[in-house]
Design a protein around this nucleic acid. Sequence first.
DNA 1: CGCAACATTGAACGGTATCAAGTATGGTGG
DNA 2: CCACCATACTTGATACCGTTCAATGTTGCG
Lengths: 258, 258
Amino acid sequence: MFDTRDKSSMPLSPPALLSKLARRLMLSPSDQKALLAAASPPRHVAKGDHLIEEGQKTTSLVILCSGMARSLRTLEDGSQQIVAIFVAGEALNPGELMFPRSRTAISALTPATSLPIPLEKLNQLVSERPTIARALWWETAAQAAIQQEWMVWLGRRSASVRLAHLLCEVSYRLQAGDQDAKDAFDLPLTQHELADILGLSTVHVNRTLQVLRSRNLIELSRNRLTIRDKAGLYEIAEFDIQYLSGLKQLDAGESQNA
Amino acid sequence: MFDTRDKSSMPLSPPALLSKLARRLMLSPSDQKALLAAASPPRHVAKGDHLIEEGQKTTSLVILCSGMARSLRTLEDGSQQIVAIFVAGEALNPGELMFPRSRTAISALTPATSLPIPLEKLNQLVSERPTIARALWWETAAQAAIQQEWMVWLGRRSASVRLAHLLCEVSYRLQAGDQDAKDAFDLPLTQHELADILGLSTVHVNRTLQVLRSRNLIELSRNRLTIRDKAGLYEIAEFDIQYLSGLKQLDAGESQNA
DNA sequence: CGCAACATTGAACGGTATCAAGTATGGTGG
DNA sequence: CCACCATACTTGATACCGTTCAATGTTGCG
């Protein structure tokens, strides 16, 4: 279940593809159906392929049905910074819908399946079904919240804290989307990619990983991460489960708001 | 016009207060009226006062009508990171509306005026007027875009680039909100606060400012910033006016989307 | 087998933090 | 108006974290 590679090679029916997103966004069955009806056929891409190009005109809302993806900004000097990662069940560009062009390139970290929903149809849907508009607005806000958390530790924390935090977050998001709370999962990121996310050099990521390993907090080899000491990892990461748990409180807290 | 301190001491009528936001969000006159009718009386606060407390229950959308504000995250060890700053005409918490509680504290950098709009009324408005919902969604996305830009330079750029970029951005946002393109404005941030934004130490901010001054790019004293060499500053900041100009293309590019 | 990508290690350099001290600046009460 | 104090700003010396460069080991794959 954790091996995202398997999923993409086994074509799922669109309803199955959508179910994860629906669960996250708490869409009603009728909204789900409507979304699905508006969607283009699902697209399967290989590892490394671009799901959205930088500067590309915004033509669809894209939902990641399986696999993992990253959002990348390239700077003039060639250095790059990964500004977001996505796991199955998340929308890739809810915020970009508001802009004429995409500001980042989004590419697949694993073989992946995406479900594009053309803007024209989406706009119609959104005006007919305010609950869908609200769900997308909410997804935009949730991603902004995650970004904000990234900012805090980019600005203020040491390499080991940043790395630990990232591992905690990915583990948490994978669980929230789909799986039971297992502590081992595929993490299809090279040390170079981790460095891009963390704003560190590859070499230093390597050394920092060794520190975490030597303290018996994690194992990581061949793209598979095992968390050996969850409490310990959370502690040095200063991982506050609260900030993401708002994602779950939606059904409880939102009913009055919606 | 640039001295935000004057504004707060001179109570403006609510319509005037809202006009900036309306211009930014491209709200129709009837939407503006409706928003205004839903709003509570404007609130005047002193420099340093909190507009929104950390962890406070989300009860209103708050619009900043005059002055400047900052959104602050405090870490367990006492260090803090400013994750956003706001100028007059911006909404303080469009994204937070989606969560039960506020994740940051927002406090006034200058004397300021805020216009709270209670959630119950807002929810009604939003369901009656999809354009308002869309405007708030858009504001959420715009703030996420700015945050993302911050992330990129927090992770990848040197102190002088970060500082220069921040100055460029503030200057740009002030102009976009209100003023003609003047190159001198009040910047009510201490070096300590700049450090919190930039993820640097106060001492290093000081030295970096001296570098910029010695290159004749800026003057900054007593909270007043003068940009002496705009082109030069933009250059070392690698300031890409594009990323924010999406904000302006809304009326051009959005009509087909909305 | 051999190549390419990834991972690991070491040494030297540099940017930024930290600590500590000193200098404006502005506001307050006498 | 002055003495005083608090806050902000400035400057220097030192230490550390993370980078860079360079070399070596490892894994997977055609």
